[in-house]
Design a protein around this nucleic acid. Structure first.
Length: 549
RNA sequence: UGGGGUGUGGCCAAGCGGUAAGGCACCGGGUUUUGAUCCCGGCAUGCGCAGGUUCGAAUCCUGCCACCCCAGCCA
């Protein structure tokens, strides 16, 4: 099903291979997350790209944690990221690195720049640096410390490392061009002082390298043949190249940028995801409504569905916002052929079959009509059942194919019944249906000749298992939630908790994902312990339009 | 009024001078003991706009326009 992609990046790699410009190297890529949050489906796009091309061209990929800012990073995130990457099906055994692994080498390269007069210690305050950087339309002014001698810079930089100065007292800057139209080239900061404990290097360092200095050097040291990143780094490419051109390193990877993923009805920025978690709008990073891989996993989405989604959206440089229906399509497509079918009643309405006298009758149904390898299961039948409240209408709309007074319907894998009497409470609400069944209409041996228009699902009133069903919908009610209106944009109905029933075979099954026939795909919640909780992954497609009949 | 990018149907996206792939969505119809799946069919006289080059332009040239990114000691 998955024909291979051929986006501009793969075309570029193919060309490099054809023209033999990789110096005999295998294709080497890297996925470089900062461990300051959980991975989301946008990262999946990058992961599938980086690990995907390496796999296709017979190379390998580093999982490199970009851990240069101890204030924001945490070990919890590195563990979660590793789990997510593995879950997606990619292996980084022997290729897990951390920018912090290279701190010593990075420092040496920085000293090299200082010795060459290409970097200097600047003692301006953060405020002053910003003020002298200029604006988009005005050039910056050179720092008064720009002319500091090499010896003094070397001494100061060494003392910065030694911890002699407080945070913010000095900074190491590249000496490039304060008048450059590219702000990134206006003597960018290379190192800053941070007296903070790093999750890996603890208190070994009090100076930490900046992204622009770190990233390109790590790429070079690891022999990355294609450094793929998102569009916002396009402006950083001249700096990426400048650093590698001005230090003594014998490898210079090309940085290639592609557009990040935009998805309707959700947010993808780590900042906003943090807000959702920290302000309690969702239950956590793995809340099934989150676009995080942990959330999607808990929701019941498979890695295959995500991979297929990433394949279908492609890789380009165009800004894009993909419709949620594409993701849902991929999820359904994957589950359609693999998920066993079962019956689950979400909003139960009790029915009594008054002429049924049987006891302990067991019916049989396949776990999957098309995929017979999944086998069959037994369904206990009885006089008291639950059906879906939606499947009954006192006054049926046109073309209604379910149950209504005096009408017949087939109970899936069981008998045809007819609704004879509707019982309501004081408020007029339907509380029970009294029906009769046709003994000769049993599924598989039907000789009744009856042809009801519809088939509905059901559950045995006593022998089915009570279950909580969490019905998830999109987290936001608007296609493009705004950072400033986050709370307002939330969908108040993104979660509806129902108390329903599932057939006993589903409750007892080892499987975690099911299609509850006619209602949707569900997944046993992995965080609920012994309690039987199902998360609705996605509904079934529904072309029934009651208003149009 | 700086720099860097991007513009092909509602949403993605092929196309790389030879006369607009494909997918999702949507709309018809068929099959169906899931209003699901599956199967058929429909869906851009036009590629941001305007000129130009050419026998021929989404593809080349020129000029406009729109949108995105950049002024962290974040990544």
């Amino acid at each position: 099903m998955t024909e291979e992609a051929n986006d501009f990046i793969r075309q570029r790699i193919q060309r490099d291979l054809d023209e033999d410009t990789l110096g005999g190297s295998l294709v080497v890529t890297r996925f470089p997350p900062e461990p300051n949050g959980y991975l989301h489906i946008g990262h999946a796009k990058s992961i599938c790209l980086n690990f995907g091309v390496a796999r296709e061209y017979g190379g390998y990929t580093y999982l490199r944690f970009d851990d240069t800012n101890p204030l924001k990073e945490d070990q919890e995130y590195v563990e979660a990221i590793k789990e997510d990457v593995r879950w997606l099906g990619f292996d980084f055994e022997g290729h897990e690195t951390h920018a912090s692994d290279y701190f010593e080498q990075l420092y040496k390269f920085a000293v090299e720049l200082v010795e060459e007069g290409k970097a200097y210690v600047c003692s301006l305050s953060g405020e002053e640096i910003r003020a002298s950087r200029g604006t988009l339309t005005e050039p910056g002014r050179e720092s008064p410390y720009r002319k500091r001698g090499v010896a003094e810079n070397l001494d100061l930089f060494a003392r910065m490392r030694a911890g002699e100065f407080g945070d913010g007292r000095h900074v190491l800057r590249a000496k490039i061009d304060m008048t450059s139209p590219n702000l990134n080239m206006r003597d960018p900061v290379l190192y800053r002082i941070r007296h903070a404990t790093h999750q890996r290097t603890a208190d070994d360092w009090v100076i930490y390298p900046m992204y622009d200095f770190t990233h390109c050097i790590c790429d070079a040291l690891e022999g990355i043949t294609h450094s793929l990143c998102t569009l916002e780094f396009e402006d950083h490419r001249p700096l990426y190249d400048w650093v590698l051109d001005n230090i003594n390193v014998n490898f210079h990877p090309p940085q290639i940028e592609f557009s990040r993923l935009g998805l309707e009805y959700t947010v993808m920025s780590k900042r906003l995801l943090h807000t959702l978690v920290e302000d309690g709008y969702v239950a956590g990073w793995d809340d099934p409504r989150m676009p995080t891989l942990a959330g999607l996993r808990r929701r019941g989405v498979t890695p295959g569905a995500i991979a297929e989604f990433c394949r279908r959206i492609g890789v380009t440089k165009q800004d894009n916002t993909v419709e949620m229906n594409l993701l849902e399509f991929c999820i359904r497509q994957d589950l359609e052929s693999n998920a066993p079918r079962g019956m689950g009643v979400v909003d139960p309405l009790k029915i009594t079959i008054v002429n049924y006298a049987g006891d302990g009758e067991l019916l049989v149904g396949p776990w999957h009509q098309q995929n017979v390898d999944l086998g069959t299961r037994e369904l206990p039948f009885g006089a008291e059942l639950y059906i879906e409240r939606d499947d009954f209408a006192e006054v049926p709309p046109k073309k209604f194919k379910r149950l209504s007074p005096g009408q017949m319907v087939r109970l899936r894998y069981a008998y045809i019944i007819r609704c004879d009497e509707v019982i309501t409470d004081e408020d007029g609400e339907v509380v029970e249906l009294r029906c009769s069944y046709f003994p000769d209409s049993r599924s598989g041996s039907d000789t009744s000749g009856l042809k009801p228009k519809g088939v509905i699902h059901w559950a045995h009133a006593q022998r089915s298992v009570a279950a909580e069903m969490r019905l998830y919908d999109r987290l936001f009610r608007v296609p493009q939630p705004g950072a400033g209106t986050l709370a307002d944009d939330l969908n108040p109905d993104s979660l509806r908790v129902a108390r329903g029933f599932v057939e006993p075979a589903v409750a007892a099954s080892e499987h975690s994902r099911f299609q509850f026939e006619r209602t949707g795909y569900f997944c046993k919640d992995a965080q609920s312990g012994d309690a039987l909780v199902f998360n609705r992954t996605v509904t079934l497609r529904d072309s029934w339009k009651p208003d149009r009949g």
